[in-house]
């Protein structure tokens, strides 16, 4: 039996015991893996191989530098300009814009739609992403018609983080699985702030006090750059809180 979540390099052979098996569901390959017919699975990226037995899925968790849009990702975009019926939104600098229709907001009609200035930030979901097309965004759930927390972000500050950390922050159990506890710890210290994490490597932080935002931003950046573990994150938070008071 091989170790859990081993490190794989592109072209490595994957231990067959790691590949999940399920009676009914077909095997799903996530990012970083490629099926070579007839029956070989090869990693195309360097990272940790993670198997999800419940979903019968296998993928490579890696800390890549470039964001590639994929459907249903939550992202933070910057409006660059407005056209007749859509906004052009930039997800990462120097890449083609994504489009966000004016009507893709909660309760938006031709007359009542949010007016976004150039440079405004929006928290949106990617509704369509094809390889050779510009991605499309939406700020409303198509099934319920509610915004579900998406929409324009006013005030606050965005911080750039690595894609790996963004993914870890978005995990359902980010502390146990993703090993990030800074936000929780800062909250436990009595700081009041709200955040929005974009899959494209951006975190938006807002608070009543400017100081809190700065501290949260520094904590996130330092966790990211120095790749701190949970214990080190605790120390960092204590240090920052001490400096702040």
């Amino acid at each position: 039996m091989a170790t859990e979540n081993p490190l794989v390099l592109p072209g490595d052979e994957i231990d067959p015991s790691l590949i999940p098996t399920h009676k009914t569901k077909p095997l799903r390959l996530g990012p970083g893996l490629r099926h070579v017919p007839p029956n070989q699975i090869l990693p195309t990226l360097a990272g940790h191989l993670i198997a999800d037995h419940r979903k019968n899925a296998l993928y490579v968790e890696y800390n890549g530098g470039r964001y590639i849009p994929s459907p249903s990702d939550l992202v933070i975009g910057q409006v660059t300009r407005s056209a007749a019926d859509l906004y052009y939104v930039n997800l990462t600098p120097y890449t083609p814009n994504a489009s966000l229709p004016h009507l893709a907001f909660e309760g938006a009609t031709k007359k009542t739609r949010p007016q976004l200035a150039n440079g405004a930030l929006v928290y949106a979901r990617i509704s369509l992403a094809n390889r050779h097309m510009d991605p499309e965004l939406e700020c409303v759930s198509t099934s319920t018609g509610k915004s579900e927390g998406l929409g324009p972000l006013t005030g606050g500050m965005v911080f750039d983080i690595s894609l790996g950390l963004a993914r870890r922050l978005l995990m359902a159990r980010s502390r146990d699985v993703g090993k990030v506890a800074v936000l929780e710890l800062l909250g436990a210290e009595g700081l009041a702030f709200e955040t929005a994490v974009g899959r494209n490597g951006k975190v938006w932080v807002n608070s009543e006090s400017v100081k809190t935002v700065v501290v949260v931003g520094r904590a996130l950046k330092e966790t990211d750059e120095k790749e701190l573990g949970v214990e080190q994150q605790k120390k960092l938070v204590q240090k920052l809180i001490k400096e702040m008071r």
């Binding site: 405004a120 005030g155 500050m157 965005v158 700065v214």
Partner: peptide, 20 residues
């Protein structure tokens, strides 16, 4: 973005820089 511009200035007015 607009948020960044406003925030950096607001923080400077309170004698704060983003990197502490």
């Amino acid at each position: 973005s607009l948020n960044e511009r406003q925030f950096v200035l607001k923080a400077l007015e309170e004698n704060l820089r983003l990197d502490g």
